[in-house]
Design a protein around this nucleic acid. Structure first.
Lengths: 241, 241
DNA sequence: ATTACATATTGTATCTTATACAAAAAGCTA
DNA sequence: TAGCTTTTTGTATAAGATACAATATGTAAT
């Protein structure tokens, strides 16, 4: 028995672009989808985590729910970045059939509100991923996705690049609590797609008084061990207002 | 007879924050609204121009239509900046009654996609304003508006301030084709709410090779006449890519 | 113990950009 | 011609961005 349906608004959905960083590349959290095309042929592909919104929740609340079900986390930073409402974004026969099965109702046009979340790729976060058939896919290995989800991811990336300039602290959401200067630098490099001079970058880090050098160093590497740094949110908030 | 209704999606609307600059202050284009509250009392207030979306149009298309009906202009630069979907944004009794009359149907929750447009306050643009009971209201004189439109305008302003940094050309959408250095400076000042040094600002203008000094000067002023400048979009596009 | 190897860390000179600050120029009016 | 109003202009200093390569540190191999 599905008791959700009468509560859902089947015109509006939220989709979440959850981005992580593995030290080398950006990855996006995607859900495996199995469906049937026109001819009854089974296909496998992937989609963004998302959901129709319920009548009793706000947009932000719906996005939070989706992310919470998936990762078990409560207070993840979610940013609404764009609405997608092309009139034929839900017109692909594959998608139509899949939607009708998933929602057990005829679904017409759906406008989706897209959210971005930057998270640490972590054991804790990965708790429920198997249940949801979810996977961290490297950004440059993402194939054709359901609906207009490739477009949504593209727009999400544009959004991050702009957002970082105004709120650099969001980068530290992507890094482990303890990180090396190299990790931070590579993150900048993959995000903006260009190389950064090592020496100048170190100087830059030194000037960020919210990036604290720790007395802890890498272990078990066969070369000089790198120092760990941590991000201090309190200092950041003070010096930015 | 209303033939629009069956074509409209009464869950999703667009609202346009149309911003102009009169040389001193920013102004927002608002529509006068007359309604009845619970007790049958008539009230007057204002709202943003907006509309439910039709089934056969995209979000951008709907926003374009609203703006075109209002100003008669075709190619205005419209930027989607945020979706507003609080579950009680259409719950105020005033708004509920007004909506039911305007849409001639029971309307539940509406998610609105908000657009921002920066335009020249111009004779041409003002052609249809009377028909629509529309008015250019100075930003700092805007009273309580319908729905959550005050909130939408607030968010629009935050958006502009960020947007200008990445695309300064949008400022020239607000200025006349010929403008003085003073106008451009005041625009910066009201937008960012702080004074700018005159000399340094002139130097900045000189460095923008897409701001072209003209051989034309102010007329009929009882003091030294200011030079006019114009914005060259071609040069701008070249030097920004 | 010494050497080879891999990566981490560090400084200086230069250029560009942002800021602070006030006198001179131009056009009109009396 | 003097006075009024607003426009236009320069210089010195501070801060931030960029270009560029040698030294330090830890592990592994000899």
């Amino acid at each position: 028995m599905e008791h959700k349906m009468p509560l859902a608004n089947n015109h509006i959905s939220v989709d979440c672009v959850v981005v992580g960083f593995d030290g080398e590349r950006l990855r996006v959290l995607l859900i495996r989808r199995i469906g049937e095309d026109n001819t009854g042929e089974v296909f496998h592909d992937m989609k963004l985590p998302g959901s129709l919104i319920y009548m009793d929740e706000d947009l932000d609340g719906a996005a939070m729910r989706v992310l919470n079900e998936l990762t078990g986390f409560k207070n993840v930073n979610l940013m609404q970045f764009k609405a997608f409402g092309s009139k034929d974004r839900t017109k692909n026969p594959k998608d139509v059939r899949w939607l009708e099965r998933a929602e057990k109702a005829k679904v017409e046009r759906i406008v989706t509100i897209a959210y971005l979340s930057l998270v640490k790729i972590d054991r804790a976060l990965n708790k429920n991923l198997d249940n949801f058939q979810a996977e961290w896919v490297p950004l440059d290995e993402i194939k054709d996705l359901a609906f207009d989800h490739n477009l949504i991811i593209e727009e999400a990336m544009k959004f991050i690049r702009q957002y970082v300039e105004f709120n650099p602290s969001c980068l530290f959401d992507l890094l482990p609590r303890k990180f090396t200067a190299l990790q931070l630098r590579v993150l900048y490099e993959v995000l903006f797609g260009k190389q950064i001079d090592v020496r100048n970058f170190h100087k830059k880090i030194m000037m960020m008084d919210y990036v604290i050098p720790m007395d802890e160093f890498q272990q078990g590497v066969s070369h000089r061990a790198a120092r760990y740094y941590k991000f201090d949110k309190k200092i950041y908030n003070k010096t930015r207002r």
